[in-house]
Design a protein around this nucleic acid. Structure first.
Lengths: 217, 217
DNA sequence: CCTTATTTTGAACGATTGTTCAATCTAAAG
DNA sequence: CTTTAGATTGAACAATCGTTCAAAATAAGG
């Protein structure tokens, strides 16, 4: 059903598409799906409206591509971190959460604005029930991969508990990314310490869920 | 500047306004601010378009009212729970998080659809940076109230740590409410146990942040 | 170089948006 | 009951929306 190309896309065309996706990423993140118009996106990308439709294939398709582009990249990054952890020898719960979060969070904080926009974009995707299939497609595979590693560490734990802890951890991570301006304003500079704090929170919370009963006191 | 009323609103008028706010609450929650049109809201409420504008005072004002209506009610509910806890004598970290979460979460699960819609609505408000002032107005007072109680329990902890833990806890709670259909599908029926699990997660995570160093092992 | 698939432009389409307004109905106040 | 502020209707407003399309510019393939 899909019509195949007869020519390779030019370098300029690829650049244009990337520029359109970047603009869409920023505006979808700031204003949500219907809040960002194709005309605003086109203006930010420096192209004509019709061209956005040509490269994006409709607004919904454009949104889909905008999310999956970074989601795929992020999934690969996380699996790389996981692989490095497993080869290091000592796989701990904290190590797993570290592999899942630190690289991404650091990118969103110190890296370009792209990952910061993506964080807000994910928040919109998670908030709107209409994007549930998209969220499942983008996030579930990697999440399930980490859940299995967690279950290998805690053989007595139920899968439901690990999945729940994973959901809560992702939520806390997104809150860290999207309200970071607030935490940052309260104690500036200590970026690395705040990442540790996030992982502390999730590790302790996950542990409490995985091994029931009073663990501390 | 505000023109004062010269007559009391009729009972029917109050009913209509409530019906409009309910419809707005549902559609704003499902599709976001620009995703829900005033005409859809009017149709769901069974009134004319102009009437929505008359009672809401513009779309932005309507959104504002929709959020604050339940936010005020929820803030009162949480402060009541907090007062009951303080009068019970033993104020613990778990008790504080329980007072903050259980009543609301139970309402959203077992109560009418209104609180379920409100949960999704808060997710939209939190995801969109344009509603930051609204979020601060609605959520900060109550949040700060609980943060102070937490700091009274942990005098050595820094305020930033308590505030961060509060943000993460709220994020986990919203994730529980808005992805509950997923958790529910995995292990149906155990509603109360899942609330305990949520509070377990947040309590352990908060404790890990408030008192640094290896608390368990 | 020549052909033509692809990219890009510019303008238009109908549909929907939030808002406004005069007319009509309702019911609170005197 | 009479008065009239307020609630409700129905229709219209200009603006913006996503989409479509023919024509021009670009560049890959032979």
């Amino acid at each position: 059903m899909e019509k195949q190309r007869k020519r390779a896309p030019s370098a300029r065309s690829l650049q244009t598409k990337a520029r359109i996706l970047d603009a869409a990423e920023q505006l979808f993140a700031e204003r949500g799906f219907e809040g960002a118009s194709l005309r605003d996106i086109a203006a930010l990308a420096g192209v004509q409206v019709g061209l956005v439709h040509h490269h994006g294939g409709g607004k919904e398709e454009l949104f889909h591509q905008t999310v999956t582009r970074r989601a795929d990249e992020l999934a690969a990054l996380r699996l790389t971190e996981l692989e490095a952890l497993k080869q290091s020898g000592d796989v701990t719960l904290r190590g797993l959460l570290d592999a899942f979060m630190r690289a991404y969070v650091t990118l969103a904080r110190n890296g370009g604005a792209h990952w910061q926009h993506y964080g807000r974009l994910v928040a919109h995707v998670s908030a709107d029930p209409r994007w549930r299939p998209l969220a499942a497609e983008c996030f579930d595979p990697t999440a399930n991969r980490f859940i299995e590693e967690i279950l290998a560490l805690y053989p007595a734990a139920e899968r439901q508990a690990a999945a729940t802890g994973q959901v809560y951890s992702v939520a806390a991570m997104l809150a860290f990314l999207n309200t970071g301006w607030r935490i940052e304003a309260l104690s500036p500079g200590a970026a690395e310490a705040q990442v540790d704090q996030l992982i502390d929170f999730c590790t302790a919370g996950m542990e409490a869920i995985l091994s029931p009963g009073p663990t501390c006191t």
